[in-house]
Design a protein around this nucleic acid. Structure first.
Length: 550
RNA sequence: GCGCCCGUAGCUCAGCUGGAUAGAGCGUUGGCUUGCGGAGCCAAAGGCCACAUGUUCGAAUCAUGUCGGGCGUACCA
């Protein structure tokens, strides 16, 4: 509908004034009409005519179109358009929910990157949900989308954990078998804390941990290797269960820092003097030459750092997928870091220029003062799930996975990516207001009406809409452009905002419109069916479950 | 110091590719209700869109500066 009007106005302007314009069609306040354009004001200067005069001329022409019921010139020169009901009704049949702007592209996206051996916190959940949803948007826009993950399986944190675990095992790896599945995450978390504490406080332990860090790169001790592999697997299995609880999809491939390291270090070493330089025993990239920070890629002790590993990872992705774009979603404090790495990569591997893109997010904070202000407090993910369950119980409902997923995902996704999320647990599970559970309810209610009616939805082409029906149809029509925008900018919050507005529009309609046993039953059922389908599709993009019954 | 991000209603946020009286939710106050899922609907109160200057027919939106907050800035990831 919008596309059609855009083209119509464009053609009319070209015909009347022999100039080209970029036509912008906006959705004005309903009192003005269904669509509006400001082309007359844009053209006023160029044509040296009063904007209203131009608007009148354009209005007179487009009014002839069969789909347009009324055209008005208003204010300084806006052209307000009202479509015919017949044209709007046609939309109910011919709506396309999918869009394929990225057809033919191949993209890779890191959808979850927690390190094994450590526990998961709220920030991991946030990153995982944002990345998963961006992946959905990429996929929905037609891209061949590969979800991958990347994990730190070597380094200091591994040394710390392994020190404590090996101490626990005390030479007998069978001791690990006694730890039940449900206790493993807590066990691992405890071991890390213990190792980290010893590393800082105990000289002897510190030295031992140093050795274990080296071991993590080149495991040659059989006991170390066995325990390491066992616990790493525990971590990944646990991670998978959490990802599923978050409603996200698992990655199809897991990359490890150990494999990226070798390749990355080699790349850096091959480019010493032209791109990288030696300084104080380390190998660095002088980002300052490009207005960026200077960063160390290979430490003076000779081991590759995160920077070098990322260069390796880029090549692994290239080898496996040969993507057009590769997305990495991180918290904003890594933004400058990635600018440096991406610049270095571009110089060292010119073929990869423009492929990797870092999308940076804000951080999650709890709204309840006590918890959020406690500095250094890590909000464990199990704790978070427990809080959500408790909050649902507190409002007198029975918690289930669908509601928990909806509450969490929606709370994270409704805020524009980049700004911080102040997470209010009670608000997120509330069924009143702008929340995931509210939209689930809205969907279930629509399904319930459809199920209850004995008639079939049917929108007749000649039907006239009443005001509430019309407002709903108009809002439904907006869905396509909203999703296109969300996919284009990779910003899921547009969808959240829209779905909530849609539900509000529906409620207004429903409040005033009897459906069952009304003469307009079939038409209204058609609107409701369309509404339910739109909600389901939109929630689907956000990976929020939309059950028919709650 | 330098760089990046942010500052919209009491709180949490949309709006930012410049357009008509700046919108939601929560909270507050008042109304609607024998009805299809009222978890709703209607209404009121609440804003110098941090401040200043500039560009423009037109600025919350763009530019510059100021103030306030966050983050980054060589061997963590």
């Amino acid at each position: 509908m919008k596309d059609r009007l855009e083209k119509l106005v464009h053609d009319v302007v070209r015909h009347l004034f022999t100039v080209q314009v970029i036509v912008d069609i906006s959705r004005p306040d309903p009192q003005f009409g269904d669509a509006a354009t400001n082309v007359a004001m844009q053209l006023a200067r160029e044509l040296k005519k009063p904007p209203r005069e131009i608007a009148e001329a354009i209005a007179a022409e487009i009014e002839k179109d069969a789909d347009i019921a009324k055209v008005e010139v208003a204010g300084p020169g806006f052209i307000n358009v009202r479509f015919t009901d017949v044209a709007l009704a046609r939309f109910l049949y011919h709506s396309e929910l999918a869009s394929l702007e990225r057809a033919g592209e191949t993209v890779v996206i890191e959808t979850n990157n927690p390190n094994p051996f450590k526990d998961l916190h709220i920030g991991h959940a946030y990153n995982c949900i944002i990345a998963d949803t961006i992946a959905n948007l990429l996929e929905a826009s037609g891209a061949e989308t590969h979800r991958v993950s990347y994990h730190g399986d070597v380094g200091l944190h591994v040394g710390r954990s392994m020190w404590a675990i090996l101490k626990f095992v005390d030479g007998d790896a069978a001791k690990l078998d006694a730890i039940e599945l449900k206790d493993r995450a807590a066990f691992m978390s405890k071991m890390y804390v213990e190792g980290a504490k010893a590393d800082k406080e105990d000289e002897k332990a510190h030295a031992a941990i140093e050795a274990l860090v080296q071991q993590s790169f080149q495991p040659d001790d059989p006991l170390f290797k066995h325990v390491y592999e066992t616990c790493k697997l525990w971590s990944f299995n646990y991670l998978d269960t959490i990802i599923e609880r978050l409603g996200s999809r698992l990655a199809e491939k897991r990359y490890l820092e150990s494999e990226a390291d070798t390749l990355g270090v080699k790349t850096v070493k091959n480019n010493i003097d032209d791109i990288f330089t030696e300084s104080k025993g380390a190998i660095i990239f002088k980002g300052e030459d490009y207005g960026l920070h200077t960063r160390v890629f290979i430490a003076s002790r000779g081991t590759g750092l995160y920077e070098a590993r990322d260069l390796g990872l880029m090549q692994l992705k290239q080898r496996d997928y040969n993507p057009d774009k590769s997305y990495i979603i991180t918290a904003e404090e890594q933004k400058d870091y990635f600018n440096v790495v991406i610049k270095a990569a571009e110089l060292a591997m010119p073929a990869l220029k423009g492929i990797t893109e870092n999308i940076s997010t804000g951080t999650v904070k709890l709204s309840t003062g006590k918890m959020s202000s406690r500095t250094g407090e890590v909000l464990n993910i199990e704790w978070l799930f427990a809080q959500l369950e408790a909050a649902i119980k507190a409002r007198g409902a029975e918690p289930n996975e669908a509601i928990i997923t909806a509450a969490l995902r929606y709370a994270f996704l409704k805020v524009r990516i980049g700004s911080d999320v102040i997470f209010d647990i009670n608000e997120s599970v509330s069924v009143e207001g702008n929340s995931g559970p509210y939209l689930q309810y809205a969907h279930a209610r629509a399904c319930s009406i459809l199920a209850k009616s004995k008639k079939a939805p049917k929108a007749s082409g000649t039907m006239q809409f009443d005001n509430y029906e019309r407002a709903l149809v108009l809002k439904l029509q907006e869905y396509r452009e909203v999703t296109v925008r969300a996919m284009d900018e990779l910003l899921p919050h547009y969808i959240c905002t829209y779905l909530y507005e849609l539900a509000q529009t529906f409620n207004r309609f429903y409040e005033h419109s009897r459906v069952i046993d009304d003469p307009r039953e079939q038409l209204r059922l058609a609107l409701i069916a369309h509404y339910a389908e739109t909600l389901r599709h939109g929630l689907g993009l956000l990976a929020i479950p939309a059950p028919e019954y709650l």
